[in-house]
Design a protein around this nucleic acid. Sequence first.
DNA 1: AGATAGCACTTTTTT
DNA 2: AGTGCTATCT
Length: 899
Amino acid sequence: MANINELLEELNPAQLKAVQHPPQIPLQILAGPGSGKTKVLTMRIAYLITYCHLPPSSICAVTFTNKAANEMRERLYKLLGKDRTSQIKMGTFHALCAMFLRRYSKTVGLDGNFTVCDADESKKMIAKLLKPYKELLTEKNMTLTENGALGFISKVKAKGWTADDARRYVEEMNALTPQERFVRTMGKFEPWEGEFGLILASVYKDYEKSLREANSVDFDDLLMFGVKLFAKHAKASSWCRHVLVDEFQDTNNMQYDLMVYIARASQCVTIVGDPDQSIYGWRSAEIANLGKMQQDFPATQQIYLEQNYRSTGSILALSLAIVSQDKGRIQKTLRASHAQGPPPVLRIFPIEQVEAAFIAAEIKRLVAFSGVRFNSLSRAIESALQKESIPNRVLAGHKFFERMEIKDVLAYLQLVDNPQYVPAFLRVVNVPSRAVGVKTINEITLRAQQLKISPLKVVERIVDGKIPDTKPPVKKKLASFVHTIRILRRHANGGIAPSKLINALVDSINYKEHLIKTQPDADSRWDNVQELVNFASEVEQNGPEDLVRRMFEADEALHEDVPENRDGEESQDDWEDGMHDFDGDQAEGLRASGDTPLRLFLQASMLSSDTETPEEEKSKEKVTISTCHAAKGLEWPVVMIPAVQSGVFPSTRAEDVDEERRLLYVACTRAKGLLYLTHTTARMMSGEFVPTHMSDFIGSLRDKKETRDLFTETLPSLPQPDRKTIATVTGRSLPDEAEVARRVSEYAKTARHPAWGDNAPFRETTMYTMDEDVVANWTPQSFPSVPLKTSGERNPAGGPGYRQDTVQPVSGPAAFSSSSSLLTTTQRAGVNTLICTTTTDGWSVQLKICCRQVHKQGVWRTAFDAGNQGKANASSSVSEPEHALTATVIGPLNERRAH
DNA sequence: AGATAGCACTTTTTT
DNA sequence: AGTGCTATCT
């Protein structure tokens, strides 16, 4: 175990002050990027335990992501040892609430086996609920999308309002005159006014009802029920003697309330935050919580951490200049600990493919990280990296758990744990296909409503012959389904490891075969299922149930207090029915505690974003592609931020421009040694080139004399002094001079882009519109006159979609026949697209995109293809026919012949 | 009931 | 620019 005294000596005065701050005086640590806040936070926890003698189980540490919680846990192992660390109540607000709600479910009117409903299922649920309102909405000439309704519900929930609260608010507002309303809302327009608002409130009510009926909660519910629990039940938080909240600037009202309630007994609070890094306003985060805390805890003191240990001086200077453009921000500074280093690079490119090629080429010289604004922007970069065979990984959030095959498996398990969870039932009744269609499902659902039991129950009873079969007969078709569920239920109640449960499931339903039959990429999907098994084993090894148990076992008060946690009537029924299926006795204890291995695994799957396999992945040197949001709290030696341009920074959809600027600030401050900002002059948006310009966040700095020199166009040549600086900043040893020379010459030999230092090749982009008569006389055959041979193949899976017809030119102009790449044509009803691509003269590459406008569904559309092999064509609406036909010539790209 | 083709919608960011 | 829903067909 590390010696804490020694570690305390390493801290700077401000850090030390923060760590040793008296626990009973509420503390705000305002910590700039790279100021060692995680270190301070973990040290403070260790300090509270070892010096202030707080029991570990009386400390609540809240992080923003579960990943951050795991990292902090790792650090604390070294300071406190595994035993004491595991008693600390640590996790996100969501995860902590989930754990408490399992224990106190009855107190807030939930069942202990509730399922956490993910955003995807929520959306499907809303879509279903919206249907009855469709007619009314069109009649009143209003539009309401799932996302609109979901956004409303989430916003309202962030205030802690139930559906009834929301309805009351809308009614109240509607009773006011427009002037009064204006005053009430402080001039802000709230789209949920009038009849529309009533509909929204009503949808929310339906949604709430559906969730409860399915014995499930969504992400926002976890917080809402958490608040309800702690507000109502003071003993639920009586164990707590100190609360620490990280990333406080990103907490919303519910989370703030949770903090206050958990701290109710002790009034001891430490928060760490940075208003400059507040980037979750769109998720109802409130920077104002900083001020609110000062009011609610009047003794609050602040400590500023402004010494930056992460980045070079020039990176900090630019970052600070960016964020300082926000005039309303709290004045704070950053002091560099390191040398100036090479200035950040700012470069311009015609289109994202070239931008990506540049990044890939530049990375060849550097171990780098690349931060993108949207996940959708990463595609070009990924493929460019692949072309250069640079290993990379995408810092993926939930993507893995959103895959169809993963959701299928999880749905079975959810259904086993929570028979009432209708979304899971609907997902898997017919997976693999059991010849159960919509009609049967509707019949079952109807019966379920009549009998006031879950659809699963209905099916079980039919199969058992307890109730008569439905009209499209179910008994035979669904016997295997019920059988599977019962096998799994028995295993689960016997406390089997979730990884084994998954194996039992895929065996029982022959899932692999099902994938092969229905999915063209069955192999990779099956790999994903195996990956899920791995994830499950990992969760088992880390022993979350053990961990959760230890978090709670020290709290005697809690044990006395656990309300009788019986399952609901519905499950009770299952219990009896399934009696012959499992030996219930040993399951009893687990059920009562609310933490079965299965339940914990499911919860981890829903709440975790930490999908990385630590050992093998982290040791490899890889380029990381991440969104700017996901990059928060992380750092890399080199950071490249593409698409720093209009429409992206700030996003066209953003409501808060200042927040967008802060996001760029967060991204820039991830860099230790080198920072690149690039942008393009055109961006492909839903099939059309839209001209873009440099982000104003950067442009305004470049246009001013005082700030112009904060960046450079020249690529860093990394002379020895710069190499030394970067080595220092990144904490790596200085590379050997001879080795550098050898690598540079090696690079020069193999580099496909020796000319990146020169801007010329990228400024030859032209976009123009073709003559109208060309448009008028265009036929698929006229340009070029190449007979095309098609070979359309249906999707072998039989599902929607088909392979694009890839054709070889049989004859034609030399330029085309000599082209080694593709000529693609797609013919879908009403859309004729001809794409001519890549001509090569050995010196340069020319990319031609030819498009044709087509009148379709009353609008003029442009049909074209960017020339990606095997990729589908795109079509998009355009207002004016004459703009529809465009040709873009880019080039010469680069490929210079070596002399 | 299942297959298919066309249509519509999204695409910010995450627990 | 890919995916999922729906109407229509088999």
